Amino acid sequence: VLKALERTRQLDIPDEKTMPVLMKLLEEAGGNWSYIKLDNYTALVDAIYSVED
């Protein structure tokens, strides 16, 4: 979780936006981090930006 938060902080995305999206992605992935961690957490960042749209 810390590495995911560090990555999104680099992009000026607050933890308050990151955590709900991260928890949803983890739930959808059955707790499997490998998809979320791919390409420096690209799936997480993309999911956060899609929620903002």
Rank of each mutant, 00 (worst) to 15 (best):
S34M: 12
D53T: 14
L2F: 09
I36V: 08
L38V: 10
G31Y: 13
I13A: 02
T42E: 11
L2D: 13
A29G: 08
D46C: 14
E6W: 07
D39Y: 09
E52R: 10
A29S: 15
L44M: 02
E52I: 14
K3C: 14
I36T: 01
W33K: 00
M23D: 05
L5S: 02
L22R: 00
T18V: 15
K37N: 10
L5D: 02
E6A: 11
V45E: 01
L5I: 04
W33Q: 00
Y41G: 01
D53P: 14
N40H: 07
R9K: 04
L5P: 01
K37I: 15
E52Q: 13
A43M: 15
K24Y: 07
L5K: 02
D39A: 09
S50A: 15
M19Q: 03
L25R: 01
P20G: 09
T42W: 12
T42H: 15
E28Y: 09
A4W: 05
Y49M: 14
P20Q: 11
A29V: 13
L5H: 02
D12T: 07
I36F: 03
S50V: 09
A47Q: 06
M23N: 07
P14Q: 05
P14A: 08
L2R: 13
K24Q: 09
A43E: 05
L2Y: 09
V1H: 07
R7W: 10
L44C: 03
P14L: 06
D15L: 05
M19W: 11
R7C: 09
L26K: 00
V45T: 06
K3R: 11
G31K: 05
A43I: 10
G30K: 12
I36N: 01
P20V: 12
L26F: 05
V51A: 14
V1I: 15
L5C: 07
T18W: 04
N40C: 06
L5A: 02
E6K: 08
L25F: 04
R9M: 04
E16C: 14
L5V: 03
D39R: 10
L2G: 11
K37E: 15
I13M: 04
E52K: 13
K3G: 13
D39E: 09
S34W: 15
D53G: 14
Y35D: 09
Q10W: 08
E6I: 11
V51L: 14
E16M: 08
G31L: 06
W33R: 00
K24M: 10
Y35A: 13
S34N: 13
K37H: 10
L2W: 08
